[in-house]
Structures are given as C-alpha cells and as structure tokens.
C-alpha cells in the first residue's frame, strides 16, 4: 500500500513540474541558464547587480516600458538595490509627473517624490501602442513571474536575437528571436556592448547588462524574496522540530494502549 502511495506522490510531483514545460519554451529550445544568486533556499539578490540593473532599466528600457507597480521608495527599502534614502530621493527628482488640481483648479507638473510610483513613459496603453508600431511594450513590474521560464526565459530572449532561418519571412518592424514564444518579436535588440556606462565601473558587455537587468526585474517582481527565504527556512526547521516533538509525544501517549495484532 505504501508503495502505491509513493508512486502517486511521485506522479503528482512530476505532473506539477511538467505541467508548464518550465525549462523549454513551446519552440522546445532549452533556455540559456544562469546561476542566479536569488535562486535556491538561501537565495539573495546581489545589491550591486540590482543597482546596475536599475541603471540599465532607466537608461535603456524605461523609454518604452513602464514599471507602474513600483515606487521610488522601493529602491531604498530592505531586500532591494538598497540605495540610500538620499540617493533614491535624487533618483525620483529626475522624473516629472502631473499632479493636481491645485487651489486654482489647474493640474501642474512637479518632480517625483519617494512616495510616487515610477513615472510611466506613456499616458496610456493606446499611446504606447501608437508609438511602437502597434505593439504594446509590456509593463515590467511582474514580467519575470508572468512568463513561463521566468528569469531564464527573459534572459534568453534578450540575448536571443538571431538572423531568421531561410524559410521565415519577417514583416517590417518584426525581428527574429530564438527563444521568444512564436519566434517573432517587435522589439529590436535593445542591448549592445557598451550601451550603458556603469556607475561602478563594471564592463558593460551584453551578457553583463542582461544579467543585471534581469536580476533587477526579478527583484521588481518579488521584492520580498529575501524575507520570504529567511522566514521560510526558520518556519520549516521549526515545523520539523515540532513534528518530532509531536511524534514522540504521540508514541509516549499510545504506549498506554496494548499493541494491536
């Protein structure tokens, strides 16, 4: 009987894991893999990488991609890039947004504060589409969680621009990508060597920028990941200890009952 249940349990696990073909897209090309620092039981974010990733996002991606669920204060909060409050305030003040109405009834422009959400490049989805050949550059706040394959998928797509095979014809404004679902993407290759001059002096190769920006996106999607791992470890150790105590209490109590045949 126990044997059967082991089988079922294994089937259940296999089933849930295979359900989404995590490691390869529907094109069945396996994703590029990175040894992300935030994966695993003790996974943490690399602060420097997050800060560089934020720089890449701001300088390269933010002109088309919003991140409307993040606030500037998040950049200074624990578990993230951990800029100082002053740095985060300075970053915020680089962006303008519309506020109001004031006491005259008018809307006015002011620079962003820590409490504001990231300023969007476009007012609305329609404007975003119109400015990008009809394609909407998706908001990046939870993108890493919104794609099967997560960080590995996004990393692969960013590095996956290739010449199309001979039998694929591309319309204007459409590019070939080895890892993108459907192989066609309307975003041109956004990164190239040296495109960003990193504040900390790291060499800005394509791989480096991609790794940094994907790390940043992974944090943006899961800002409490480090707290979750930390508390989770304690919780599971605690439950194992209490299970053992409960087990021995149970044995002790049941010893009063005569054993069964």
């Amino acid at each position: 009987m126990k044997f059967y249940f082991k089988i079922i349990f294994i089937l259940f696990i296999l089933f849930t894991f295979n359900n989404q073909k995590i490691e390869a897209g529907e094109n069945n090309k396996e994703f590029l893999k990175v040894d992300w620092s935030f994966k695993g039981v003790f996974g943490k974010f690399d602060r420097a990488s997050l800060q560089r990733g934020y720089q890449v996002y701001t300088e390269v991606c933010a002109s088309c991609h919003s991140m409307k669920l993040l606030s500037y204060r998040n950049l200074a909060e624990k578990g993230g890039p951990e800029f100082s409050k002053e740095q985060a305030k300075a970053i915020a003040s680089n962006f303008d947004l519309t506020d109001g109405p004031n006491s005259d009834g008018d809307m006015f422009t002011r620079s962003a504060k820590l409490s504001d959400k990231f300023v969007k490049p476009y007012q609305n989805i329609q404007e975003a589409k119109a400015s990008n050949g009809g394609a909407y550059p998706p908001d990046l706040s939870v993108l890493v969680k919104a794609r099967s394959g997560g960080a590995n998928y996004v990393y692969s797509v960013l590095l996956g621009y290739d010449d199309p095979p001979s039998d694929v014809i591309l319309d204007d404004g459409v590019y070939y990508n080895t890892y993108m679902t459907g192989n066609k993407i309307m975003m041109p290759n956004p990164l190239s060597e040296g495109l960003v001059e990193y504040n900390d002096g790291t060499k800005a190769t394509e791989e480096q920028m991609t790794k940094d920006v994907v790390t940043f996106l992974a944090w943006a999607a899961e800002p409490h990941l480090e707290a979750r791992h930390k508390i989770g470890f304690k919780a599971i150790i605690y439950l194992l200890i209490l299970s053992i105590l409960a087990y021995f209490s149970m044995k002790r109590l049941w010893s009063r009952i005569e054993p069964e045949v």
Partner: peptide, 19 residues
C-alpha cells in the same frame, strides 16, 4: 505546505495570471 509557500509559491499557479 510551508515548502510551497516559502520556496515555490507560484509553482502550482499559471504565469499568465500575472498578466
């Protein structure tokens, strides 16, 4: 349960629901 909540919270869900 704790393993899912703390280490694989989105494993049983579907990525499309983050769109």
């Amino acid at each position: 349960f704790a393993f899912f909540v703390f280490y694989a919270p989105n494993l049983l869900g579907h990525p499309d629901n983050y769109i």
